[in-house]
Design a protein around this nucleic acid. Structure first.
Length: 932
RNA sequence: GCCGGUGUGGUGGAAUUGGUAGACACGUUGGAUUCAAAAUCCAAUGCAAGCAAUUGCGUGGGGGUUCGAGUCCCCCCACCGGUACCA
């Protein structure tokens, strides 16, 4: 029989030496691109959860290869990021060093599982030869703007030429710039002024923004790196801080990012997440005059129909108009309130959402329809970065406005009669308009349309589209990231040319951020100051930079002249199947689509969307075991979970799952030796008392959660591979259930697939000797094989690998029953199984006498004619309930089936004394007799 | 709150288009083999009643459509994930 350790070692070496999985775009075959989201190489190494997606995609890659596709299946590493930098700060080990060590470990672990990656295409985002092109694409973003007429990115020098020739008139481009100028004015401007204006158009630009500043980490964090107002990493407090930052104008692409979702095959939940993130809403932009002032307040509302109920206005605390409009007698109170707001952390603000705060500015606005004076307030609940940072408040039809009005005693005018809709909430767009002059009597949707017309005609605003999505903050004050290819001259940035790239990250041994929040790079004077008063940008790019285009680099990873050759890009086009975790649902997947669309506009790539089909593999969770610690005057006591009083518990201490008996169940516990092991591991609890349950066990608290170092529950795939073999590991992870589903890891059941593999290879042996005959197979054997071919192919195509394996189990069980050891059956069976169990099948293939790899052979052909059965066993039902089974010839006609079913002896007791109303016969399915 | 998903034996799960619910495994029980154990092989295994043939019940709960519902429709419940003063 086969010794899996020997054959794994043998074929791992053979495949590596022969570069079996190396592909080229110079091929006549159709292409297929299967990609895994590349991992961040953390110090903890891979755990059994990571390979779940890799195995699933590897099976598809191998399947497609056998089916005759030219398969691109690469792997690389997302190697820039915060953990390596934190590790460097703590230990002094350079991030490059720890990262490369971690990568080596990852590669070793990956190779043990038998993936068919083309390692000649490996990339690492921290490699200068890679980030050269990340920097280069950034320079392109800097040098382009978004043209609304052609609906694509165009060169900023074109825009400049237009300004020079015609001024700003007639330019339709995506910008926040609101001024206008003639060609003469443009030419007369200072260079700085011209630069400022162009910056309002560039797709990469700098602006002062309120960023999530985490002083403990010394860096700016993205929204998705914050959980409940604390940093996801480390749980440190996060506050708002004004900083000049680089931004990418992702909002210019909002509409295309939204509509592009229609043309790709992603799960509906993922698309919904992206749609919600983009957050498109249609509404009206309205201007309210301020009483006794020439200023106006601009608001955005989706409910212009309720304007007759707008009894006050609210500005965000950061709104620039506040300074200008606040009245003298309210000035102190306003300042007091603004101080209060800025003293509050994000965490406080978020956890106290229901708390209503605000202050009156002393100023009034005029309702554009009634000309009535309404007070202008400031309130925390209005956010500066959504809409215009100001709202018209309609307390009768908005929950938040209502609460605010009640608290501060503001007027409430009902404008929508919802008596016909008892279950509708305040903001539901239903009901009949009242107290609203010309709108009275209209239904809400009609009233909204009518108002849009009215606003246009009266010229007091416009119908607009608003997006929740904001431009992406692109600066990080860290060391371990791509340096910006930017040089400042008198404060004006310009980009390095392609020839000067990559701009390499300079060496240093001080990774701490500076106290004022500057990146560690700012300390390296010789690097920052390049002479002639020129200065480099010292921020670095965020981790999403490198992952926003890596899938393109794989197409041509060693190209020195371009990020990838035109030829390679045209051949591979885009990713046919992308597999990865749903934690990247927004950030990575949105930025990657944005970069890709930008490169599409510039003509570098020829398809609009980068990832045709996407599958989110579920998480493999771990079991977390805790013991309850009660601290008291008499010292530490650990009390069994079944008898402990929950309120007295000082802490639940996570412990090694290896110490726990029956871990993961509701009766998980520590036996005496478990307690001993625990004490050996944590000697600081030597003096503690252990209060066990009556049966002498110390019961533990079990949870299902993340597999992580801090819970001591990480299962290393190497250990499983060592104990059962790589093929068993692969099969088992797939056999656990559907790929998309999350599930806790447990080893129950791995014996099942292990047995199956042994039984499969056992078909090729008699009495420990390899023995396969050339006899012709029987019809039955052919039917068993071809049933499996059909089912396995269909299942792999729809990524249902667990049912494909079960079909193979059935096939092997049935062949075993008839003692089949015929080449004509076993050879195609091995090919059928090769994608799932690459080592075992490769070894058997060689023993069958083949000189070339099974993985470069072909997929077994399916022949429908072998599935023909002479008879079919029909379930005979009465009123839909199965009452008997009867075998009929496969070609029996309906009349025969009906007649013979009714005549069956077993049927008589169900029919007797009743009326047979009708008989329904569905060929090859069932017979149903309807009686009354 | 809103959005999305899930709910099937003791366990993981299957049922692709409305057509035999529980495939395939794990576990458990009994048996063979063995000095013994492991491994292997055979048999049984949704629940309840019955010696049995058999019968009733059964896909989170309630209702509906249909000859027929795990699958479609309506209402409700539980759990998981995402998201949130988004005007």
């Amino acid at each position: 029989m086969l010794d899996y350790k020997k054959i794994e070692a043998k074929w791992k070496k053979n495949w590596r030496d022969s570069e079996l999985y190396k592909v080229s775009h110079k091929s006549d075959k159709p292409k297929f691109y299967v990609l895994d989201m590349f991992p961040y190489p953390s110090g903890a190494g891979l755990h059994v959860g990571h390979p779940l997606g890799y195995i699933a995609s590897d099976i598809v890659a191998r399947y497609k290869r056998l089916k005759g596709f030219n398969v691109l299946h690469p792997m690389g590493f997302d190697a820039f990021g915060l953990p390596a930098e934190e590790y460097a700060i703590a230990t002094g080990v350079h991030p490059a060093e720890s990262t490369s060590k971690n990568i080596e470990r990852y590669k070793e672990q990956l190779s043990n599982i038998g993936f068919s990656f083309d390692w000649s295409r490996e990339l690492q985002t921290c490699d200068p030869q890679y980030y050269k092109w990340t920097q280069w694409i950034f320079t392109l973003l800097f040098e382009h703007y978004y043209d609304l007429e052609e609906d694509k990115a165009k060169s900023i020098s074109d825009l400049e030429a237009t300004f020079r020739a015609k001024g700003s008139a007639g330019v339709k481009a995506y910008t926040y710039y609101e001024g206008s100028f003639t060609a003469e004015q443009w030419s007369a401007m200072e260079e700085t002024a011209r630069f400022e204006i162009l910056s309002e158009y560039r797709l990469a630009y700098r602006k002062v923004g309120y960023v999530n500043w985490c002083s403990a980490l010394g860096t700016v964090l993205a929204n998705d790196q914050i959980k409940d107002g604390l940093s996801e990493r480390g749980g440190h407090p996060v506050e708002k801080k004004a900083m000049t930052q680089w931004y990418l104008r992702t909002t210019a692409y909002a509409e295309r990012l939204l509509s592009g979702l229609e043309e790709i095959d992603w799960s509906s939940s993922l698309k919904t997440i992206q749609r919600n993130w983009i957050g498109k809403s249609k509404g009206a932009q309205l201007f309210f005059d301020i009483a006794d002032s020439d200023k106006q307040i601009e608001v955005f509302t989706t409910r212009p129909d309720t304007i007759f109920g707008a009894t006050y206005m609210v500005l965000a605390p950061e709104h620039p108009l506040i300074e200008e409009i606040k009245s003298a007698d309210q000035s102190d109170k306003v300042q007091e309130y603004l101080d209060y707001v800025s003293s509050r952390s994000d965490r406080e603000r978020m956890s106290q959402v229901k708390q209503v705060t605000g202050v009156f500015t002393g100023a009034y606005a005029l309702n554009p329809f009634t000309q009535k004076k309404i007070p202008i307030w400031i309130g925390e609940y209005v956010l500066m970065d959504y809409g215009t940072g100001a709202i018209m408040a309609v307390p009768s039809d908005d929950e938040r406005d209502h609460t605010f009005a009640e608290k501060f005693g503001l007027e409430i005018i009902p404008v929508v009669d919802k008596s016909g809709h008892p279950n509708a909430s305040k903001s539901d767009k239903v009901g009949t308009m009242i107290n609203s002059e010309f709108l009275d009597g209209l239904q809400v949707p009609e009233a909204i349309k009518r108002m849009y017309q009215e606003i246009n005609e009266k010229n007091i605003g416009a119908v607009t589209i608003n997006y929740k999505m904001r431009d992406a903050g692109f600066s990080r004050q860290r060391y371990w990231g791509e340096p910006f290819p930017i040089i400042y001259k008198d404060g004006i940035p310009s980009v390095l040319s392609k020839e000067d790239l990559p701009l390499e990250l300079p060496q240093t041994d001080d990774f701490k951020p500076t106290s004022d929040g500057q990146s560690p790079l700012s300390r390296i004077d010789s690097w920052v100051n390049t002479g002639d008063g020129l200065k480099r940008e010292t921020d670095t790019m965020p981790a999403v930079a490198g992952s926003s285009w890596y899938f393109l680099r794989y197409m041509d990873p060693h190209n020195q002249e371009a990020f990838a050759s035109k030829e390679a890009l045209d051949y591979w086009q885009n990713v046919d199947l992308y597999v990865g975790g749903s934690e990247h649902a927004v950030a990575h997947l949105l930025y990657a689509r944005f970069w890709h669309k930008f490169l599409y506009d510039l003509g570098y790539v020829s398809v609009r969307e980068p990832f045709k089909k996407l599958i989110n593999q579920g998480m493999i969770q771990g079991v977390i075991e805790y013991i309850a610690l009660v601290k008291g005057d008499s010292g530490d006591r650990f009390i069994s979970a079944d008898i402990v009083n929950a309120e007295s518990v000082s802490a639940f201490i996570p412990i090694h799952i290896d110490f726990v008996s029956d871990y993961g169940t509701d009766h998980s516990h520590l036996k005496t030796d478990g307690i001993e092991k625990f004490l050996e591991w944590r000697p600081e609890y030597k003096g503690a008392e252990f209060v066990t349950s009556e049966d002498g066990n110390l019961y533990t608290k079990s949870e299902t959660g993340k597999m992580s170092k801090r819970y001591y529950n990480v299962v290393n795939p190497d250990d499983v591979v060592d104990a059962y073999g790589a093929d068993t590991f692969r099969l088992y992870e797939m056999f656990l259930g559907p790929i998309e589903q999350s599930k806790p890891w447990d080893m129950q059941g791995i014996e099942g697939v292990s047995k199956f593999l042994r039984r499969f290879s056992g078909l090729f042996f008699s009495d420990e000797v390899f023995n396969v005959t050339n006899e012709n197979p029987t019809d039955q054997e052919l039917r068993i094989l071809h049933t499996a071919i059909k089912k396995v192919s269909e299942d792999i195509e729809r990524f249902s690998h667990n049912t494909a394996i079960s079909a193979l189990m059935i096939c092997v069980n049935e062949l075993k029953k008839v003692n089949c050891n015929k080449r004509q059956i076993l050879e195609p069976l091995a090919q059928l199984m090769a994608p799932l169990a690459p080592f075992t099948t490769e070894e058997l293939w060689e023993r069958l006498g083949h000189k070339t790899s099974i993985h470069t052979s072909s997929y077994p052909a399916f022949d429908e004619s072998h599935l023909k059965e002479d008879s079919f066993e029909y379930p005979i039902c009465v009123n839909g309930k199965k009452r008997a089974l009867k075998s009929f010839p496969a070609d029996a006609d309906k009349a025969t089936l009906e007649k013979e079913s009714l005549e069956m002896e077993e049927m008589q007791k169900w029919i007797e004394g009743k009326n047979v109303v009708k008989v329904i016969v569905v060929p090859k399915r069932m017979v149903n007799i309807v009686v009354k």
